[in-house]
Amino acid sequence: VITQLFKDVERLVSQEEYAKVLRSIDKILQLNPEDNDALHCKVISYIRLGKYQNALELLQKSFSDENLISEKAYCFYRLNKFDELLNLLRQYKLGNKNELSLRHIEAQVAYKTEDYNASVEIYYALLKETDKNLDVYNDILTNFNAAKAALL
């Protein structure tokens, strides 16, 4: 039964039917409340639906501090919880975990809080280490230029 439900989840994710994903996930969690993949899917579905508070509550209830850090940071970012976000980022920098996702969140929150120098610096470093042929290179360049323009 769980295998079939996960197949449904996979199909619904590819169709971007996130409200329906949540329904299938809840059926899995009724059978197996601790299923880590199901809990992870539930967090991402909430985020895709813009329900950042629900995502954050689930992250805090069902995942330890070291898990799904990027997801937690992203929820803080979207909820404008900048103090919590900066604490989280500081913690992870101390642990030398410099994931790309966290560097992007750091650059975005710097821009959002008008710390344009910090934002420019992170995007400059990201540009230097990103392949120019990747789509993301142009996105980084756009954000770099936006932060640089805001500095002037």
Binding site: V9, V13, H40, I44, S70, Y74, H104, V136, I140
Partner: peptide, 21 residues
């Protein structure tokens, strides 16, 4: 205000193990 992308969103994704369940 200039264009600014939410690039971090792309790094938040469903677990890669999903297809093996």
């Amino acid at each position: 205000k200039p264009l600014f992308f939410d690039i971090a969103f792309n790094y938040v994704d469903f677990p890669p193990t999903l297809s093996q369940r």
